[in-house]
């Protein structure tokens, strides 16, 4: 009999997605009731586990599929993560976020200044978003590195429409789960938890603002912010609040976690801007993750390359002060 002692850096296949999560995801997918072409041949309610192996039945949205953008590898995207709830090193979350942290079932709350406040299960919420689409976006971290990520999900505007905000609502505040039992970072208190992020309502309603439920057509892994994560490609990565439990419409600008921690270095807007430096490093250029060998560096684009689409949101705003 072969007895193999795996070294401690080795993550077994089974740890990447614990089996019960794997099956729960299948159930989750089935409840989505999405009639993708690949799905059509299968009975959605059957217990045939093969039915869901293709992951989310997602359709590529050609409007957000720039052929010049070559997606980073799935390994890089899912092994190089900032998720301080599960450790401050890039290699921590893939291990620590998969040690019994359950992201299904998951309740999401729509709250604050809106006509339809409600609490609902994430699968019910996604089912109301009529279909999952894939968009390939640039991703730029405030730490001056970047990736290209094929996100699956739905436009944030659809979720906002479901909540039906009141005229007084000017901002959308989003909050990550709080459960120190499963989150080593929350037990240590390496940040002020729960993690909070916010957008101006017009930013949130922008066509680029997206809620990710998957990556590369697969359910979004825990370490990337399962089951719901904000994606705002013209902003730095720390705005992409993960594992959201609450969407709240407010009249006042919410104080986001990193701004509360260190307002000199991180602001509310966090728009990618090569001309406004971080106090400790330059934002003019970025490391390309998965660049191979010594890696490569490229110039950072204004608004991360989405200037044409979003510059209008910030007319008359001093971007040097409102970083």
């Amino acid at each position: 009999m072969l007895i193999r002692t795996p070294p401690d850096w080795e993550l077994p296949e089974s740890a990447a997605t614990p089996e019960q999560h794997y099956h729960a995801r299948r159930d989750f997918l089935k409840t989505l009731g999405l009639a993708g072409a690949a799905f059509a041949a299968h009975d959605l309610l059957s217990t045939d586990v093969l039915a869901a192996t293709a992951g989310f039945p997602t359709k590529v949205n050609p409007a957000y599929r720039d052929p010049a953008l070559k997606p980073s590898s799935y390994e890089a995207i899912t092994n190089y993560n900032n998720f301080y709830e599960f450790g401050t090193s890039k290699e921590d979350p893939v291990v620590l976020a998969n040690r019994g942290w359950k992201t299904e079932p998951w309740t999401v709350e729509l709250a604050g200044l809106c006509r339809a406040p409600q609490k609902l299960d994430v699968s019910d919420l996604v089912a109301k978003m009529d279909g999952i689409e894939q968009r390939v976006y640039r991703f730029r971290c405030v730490e001056a590195w970047s990736m290209i990520i094929p996100w699956d999900g739905f436009p944030l505007a659809k979720l906002i429409a479901l909540a039906d905000p009141l005229p007084d609502a000017k901002f959308l505040k989003m909050t990550t789960f709080l459960d120190p039992k499963v989150s080593p970072g929350q037990r240590q208190g390496n940040l002020d938890y729960p993690y909070v992020e916010g957008l101006r309502l017009d930013e949130a309603n922008h066509e680029l603002s997206f809620i990710a439920t998957g990556i590369y057509g697969k359910p979004i892994p825990n370490q990337n912010g399962a089951p719901l994560r904000l994606v705002v490609p013209w902003k730095y990565g720390f705005k992409y609040v993960k594992s959201i439990v609450k969407f709240e419409f407010t009249a006042k600008q919410p104080l986001n976690t990193w701004q509360a921690m260190q307002s000199r270095e991180y602001g509310f807007y966090a728009n990618v801007n090569p001309t406004v430096d971080h106090p400790r490093w330059s934002q003019a250029s970025e490391r390309v993750i998965g660049g191979g060998g010594l890696g490569s560096r490229q110039r950072t684009l204004m608004f991360n390359g989405y200037e044409k689409q979003v510059a209008g949101l910030y007319k008359g705003l001093d971007l040097r002060k409102n970083y």
């Binding site: 070294p7 850096w9 080795e10 390994e75 890089a76 899912t78 092994n79 190089y80 090193s89 890039k90 290699e91 893939v94 590195w145 490391r287 993750i289 998965g290 660049g291 060998g293 010594l294 890696g295």
Partner: peptide, 17 residues
């Protein structure tokens, strides 16, 4: 060791870093 033997994906994302 991490780059060539263990091939840690977290390290390989940007080995030089």
């Amino acid at each position: 060791w991490l780059i060539f033997v263990a091939k840690s994906p977290s390290v390989l994302a940007d080995p030089l870093k």
